[in-house]
Computed example of a mutant assay.
Amino acid sequence: MKVRSITEGDTEVLVPIPVEGANFAPSAAPVFYNPVMEMNRDISVAATSAFVKRMEPDPEKTITYVDALSASGIRGLRIANETGIHTTLNDWSEEACDLIQQNIDNLEIGHNTIASHKNANVLLHEKHFNIVDLDPFGTPAPFLAAAARSVINLLEVTATDTAPLCGAHLNSGIRKYAAIPFNNEYHSEMGVRILLGRIARELSLQDKAMNPLLTHATRHYVRTYLEMKKGAKQADKMLKNMGFIVHCPACGNREAIYGLAAHIEEKCGRCGEKNMLGGPMWLGKIHSPDFCSETIAELEARNCGTKQLAIKMLELCRDELDIPMFYDQHLICKKLGVSASAIETVIQELRNRGFKASRTHFSGISFKTDADISDIEIIIADLR
Rank of each mutant, 00 (worst) to 15 (best):
M1F: 13
K2I: 06
V15A: 07
P18Q: 10
V19S: 10
N23M: 02
A25M: 11
A28G: 15
P30F: 04
Y33H: 06
Y33M: 04
P35K: 08
M37K: 09
N40Y: 07
S44F: 01
A46W: 03
A50T: 05
V52H: 06
K53N: 10
R54G: 11
P57D: 14
T62H: 07
I63V: 15
I63H: 03
T64S: 14
V66F: 07
D67F: 04
A71F: 08
R78S: 05
N81I: 05
S93L: 08
A96G: 05
L107M: 09
E108F: 03
G110H: 11
I114A: 00
S116G: 05
F129M: 07
F129C: 07
V132G: 04
T139P: 08
P140A: 00
P140D: 04
R149T: 09
R149C: 00
V157T: 13
T158D: 02
P164L: 09
A168E: 12
I180N: 08
E185T: 13
R193N: 00
N211K: 11
A217L: 01
V222E: 05
V222Q: 03
R223T: 02
K230H: 12
D236H: 12
K240H: 12
G252Q: 05
A261I: 15
A261W: 08
G269K: 15
C271E: 11
C271R: 09
G278Y: 12
G279Q: 02
E294W: 07
I296F: 01
E298S: 06
A301V: 05
C304L: 11
A310S: 14
Y327K: 09
D328S: 14
D328Y: 03
L336F: 02
S341K: 13
S358D: 11
R359M: 03
T360G: 08
H361W: 04
I365E: 10
I365L: 11
E377S: 11
I378K: 15
